[in-house]
Design a protein around this nucleic acid. Structure first.
Lengths: 188, 188
DNA sequence: CCTGCATGTTTGACCAGTCAGTCATTTGAA
DNA sequence: TTCAAATGACTGACTGGTCAAACATGCAGG
């Protein structure tokens, strides 16, 4: 058998794409990504059918990683406030500790090339978080609001907080606390 | 004197750019914008030095319009809650009534081509709103939070709300109310 | 009223550069 | 030797921006 199509290469391309897209946005040339991955540009297209395919895969990958990190070490026995605080801290920690991944994800979030089915696929990594949120708000003033609206608020606040922490990292903890308190006040 | 460089043409290009950029994003070819404006592609570059110049002008234009609309009919004598509700309603009304302008603005907001000085220039249309927000939160639990963080929360929530209203226009009023209540709860 | 000229504007074919994706050729493990 | 995998020069499509020619307009003098 010939040298196998290694997953290592795939991952190298994904990692390179993360870096390049974080720096240059979705418009970055595939040739640059291939080069950064130590791969010929022709090879890139044996691992990903099209550029759009690469972007979609990367989106799912990053989003899933974010979801997984946020529920890691989930405090099962605790109250809702502590559980949500845990998830909140996890989201912010990953985003601030992996600025390139976050930045790439930010670009992918608004990219037209990333199709609906990819967005749905990525959502399934957030099942635990979704149900936590549902439970947390069901007795508060936002119980009647559609879930999507509330989820949009949450991720919007998270996004704004991360943006702010990256600008002012010294007060990261304070900003995290401020944003969580604001979020909790919003819930009820 | 020969036919003057009409502002009408400039505006036509701006309007066309709004439409095309809303539909295709920042990457839309200038030729398409020129065509939609009923102008040759060469002419476009007599009104705007470069594509980036056009994007910056358009950004300032749209953002200023949004700011102006939000403070239109500002209820000077009323309480802070009513004042903020007025601004909130104004922001959401403009955004939902002008989906193309909003969509174009959304693209421009994240465009690298739009430089810092343009963003600053656009901010001055929001002076009134800024001071209102400062007054509104100065006695609440967010009084210690940096202004930028709070402003980011606000515009993030507004953005999420608009997105949601456009998906579910029948319940626009309910969503507007929900989001304002959430915002007000956040303030204190 | 017409004609010719000067001034300034509009035009669109064109240019140079860029990009995603292809494919004939090479490589190297089995 | 065999053959899947890797390569990178190449292609065709497209883009922002240019520029020489065409055109509109106002005016002076016949």
């Amino acid at each position: 058998m010939a040298r196998p199509r290694s997953d290592d290469r795939r991952n190298a391309i994904m990692a390179a794409a993360t870096k390049i897209i974080a720096a240059q946005g979705i418009g970055a040339p595939t040739a640059l990504i291939a080069k950064a991955a130590g791969v010929s540009n022709g090879s890139l297209f044996t691992y990903f059918e099209t550029k759009a395919d690469l972007l979609n895969q990367l989106y799912i990958d990053l989003k899933s990683e974010l979801g997984a990190v946020a529920v890691d070490g989930f405090p099962v026995g605790e109250g809702q406030r502590e559980q949500l605080a845990h998830v909140w801290a996890g989201l912010l920690r990953w985003s601030t500790a992996n600025p390139e991944k976050r930045r790439a994800l930010k670009h992918l979030n608004v990219a037209e090339e990333v199709v609906t089915s990819s967005r749905e696929a990525a959502r399934c990594g957030f099942g635990e978080i979704t149900s936590l949120i549902e439970r947390a708000r069901e007795n508060g003033p936002m119980h009647a609001a559609p879930y999507g609206l509330f989820a949009a608020f949450m991720s919007a606040i998270a996004e704004a907080t991360v943006e702010f922490i990256l600008q002012d990292p010294e007060n990261a903890d304070a900003h995290r606390q401020t944003s969580f308190d604001a979020l909790w006040r919003m819930i009820g």
